[in-house]
Design a protein around this nucleic acid. Structure first.
Lengths: 367, 367
DNA sequence: TTGTAAGCGTTATCAA
DNA sequence: TTGATAACGCTTACAA
């Protein structure tokens, strides 16, 4: 039987799917008005005061009934939903996963839930955004990566008066606060490390066109130039931020006689591709080739050889972003710091070593 | 001054933080009643029909104003919030990260947003759950891992009439649908692989006490027994599902003269610990020791040596779980399949090889 | 075929 | 110090 026995006093509409404790019930039990319950529970110290007796009764009743205020109703009424929107460019990028972890936990610590949206599909971006906004459920938004690919994003969020903070591979010149690591320092650390090891024939693998990536490349090249080292254009390889793409793209370079003795990779994912390509080409790392990565992503220390990499503080990045959005939510008129540079450090591992006087297996013939 | 200049025609309350298009405005522009707009927009084929002319005007007005229905109001009114709760036991466990990715994308494809909650802190579990429920915002919940650690979870969700589906390391005997891989087949595959390679001195590293993990152990041991192989209790090592814990725990085993020639690890994370311990002990893998993992987590193929592992279909697991919850949401009276076994397969890589006649470096003295 | 009105649970304003 | 009341934006009987 699908139908339950009819209840004579059932409400006019279909039986509520979820029986839930409402404020009115608490009020009834406590023998006060709903508004009083609200006042007690919201702890509204606002001007009015409440008799101890009443407060006690209300709290007791709420406790007894297991009352939980509906965030839906609260949100509708105009206050906060305590929901934070999170738009992630690529949920499979290891750094982004760490960021999500950090963001979720920081948000929880501050009493917020996180509504997560992934913008993996290239065209889905706008769509996704609309879905988040459409609900108008979120008090603020953190965008991880790909800010540049969402042209109307900032504007639309701004129009909706929803605070946004960008995180990760975001633009330098947007109109919203962006939390990033100190890419300049990171790229410089990478260069200095290789330079100290005696490397002068360098290459750079550029993982995509995002501003952060480009910054890393530029700073690295500038540092090299300042040290009197020229990196030939053919040694600056543009590639998608994917391991397989990098592996394919650097193969010709490694096969050439003029191949570099060291490679700076702007992300670990492409560094992994370089390691694979070297292995395939029979070039030993670090003896035949030194490789520096960027991100120090999960498990990069377990690769073979373990990867020397510029470590980003994912936890710091995530929690800072959350902190900034929540500040903006709490005080919309306040000016949040426009940008936050988090320090990086170099994790030196087995993928880098001293430059050999002569590249192993190199011939004089170029191509 | 905190107070803003007064606006004579301002609404009684403080100025709405977010100006938004409401249904009433659409109705006004279209020259119809709000209810009509609702009918048109919800596509309510329910009994009533609407004149083409009206429908056209409503749609045009909605489009022109950029109207987006408030999910808040909808949810409050009793319908769906289109929000899916996601409770993740450990957001840093690589398999869980893949599951989150799959879940988020599947949910999006089906028009749902995902509210994510992490239950990393051991005591925060109940707290977290309460927070998700407290909002009563979610139409359903997917719980990834750790279902057993949340005693009251199922009951409470059941009481709230919120559909739940468990995923991953969940209990076998709960009262809710659980989506899992075929652990039996996985453990058997692992054993058969090692047996074919001639291994008879086996060990098992058990990563925690979750039912799935225990199942893998039991099936592996049973298969061994059936093949006439006894795994001594000292070779069954219980350990937390962490790399460092595993590394420490197996060190004595590897140092013993009676050490196994092959180890079955119930997760890749502990397999990584075993690989490290072997490396530290100077035991070559796979020559001195074969290692099989479980999960085939991200990057395990890039370890050294690359890990032979039982691959779980994270994508299939995630999307199936979402499918089941949404089915339950759409039809609360329907009976969803109680359990779903997803197939696994063995990825054979470099960490397993034929058993040596005599364990390398073994002595006769035990300890 | 469409409009009217009530109500979802909460909070803010006003009056008592 | 507290209670009644009116929104918030939407859906859905019921009436027209």
């Amino acid at each position: 039987m699908a139908a339950e026995p009819r209840d004579d006093v059932a409400p006019a509409t279909s039986p509520p799917q979820r029986r839930l404790v409402t404020m009115k019930q608490v009020a009834e039990l406590a023998g006060v008005a709903p508004s009083t319950v609200s006042r007690v529970l919201t702890g509204a110290a606002t001007s009015v005061s409440i008799s101890d007796e009443t407060r006690r009764r209300v709290l007791a009743s709420a406790e007894e009934l297991g009352f939980r205020p509906s965030r839906l109703a609260r949100g509708l009424r105009g206050s906060r939903t305590a929901l934070l929107g999170l738009l992630v460019r690529d949920l499979r990028y290891p750094l982004h996963q760490s960021l999500v972890d950090a963001i979720v936990r920081e948000a929880h610590d501050r009493g917020y839930h996180v509504v997560i949206g992934s913008t993996d599909g290239l065209d889905a971006d706008q769509h996704e955004l609309e879905r988040i906004l459409e609900t108008r459920m979120v008090d603020g938004v953190v965008v991880v990566g790909g800010l540049d690919d969402l042209p109307g994003l900032v504007d639309e969020l701004y129009r909706e008066r929803i605070p946004v903070v960008g995180l990760g591979l975001g633009s330098r010149d947007g109109h919203i606060p962006i939390v990033r690591s100190d890419n300049e320092a990171g790229a410089r650390l990478a260069f200095e490390h290789l330079a100290e090891l005696g490397h002068r024939r360098l290459a750079v693998v550029v993982a995509g066109v995002h501003p952060e990536i480009v910054d890393r490349r530029d700073v690295f090249l500038a540092a090299a130039a300042a040290a009197g080292i020229t990196v030939p254009p053919a040694h600056v390889i543009d590639v998608a931020n994917r391991t397989d793409a990098a592996e394919t793209a650097v193969a010709p370079l490694l096969a050439s006689s003029a191949r570099p003795t060291a490679v700076f990779c702007t992300t670990d994912m492409v560094a992994r591709g370089v390691l694979r390509a070297a292995q395939r080409a029979g070039i030993g790392v670090p003896d035949g080739l030194s490789v520096v990565g960027y991100d120090d992503q999960e498990w990069a220390a377990d690769w073979w050889p373990s990867l020397t990499s510029v470590r980003q503080d994912a936890w710091g990045l995530g929690s800072t972003a959350v902190r900034l959005v929540l500040e903006a939510i709490d005080d919309p008129s306040a000016t949040v710091p426009f940008r936050d540079w988090l320090p990086v450090r170099l994790e030196v591992r087995a993928s880098t070593g001293p430059a050999r006087p002569d590249p192993v297996g190199g011939t004089e013939r170029g191509d």
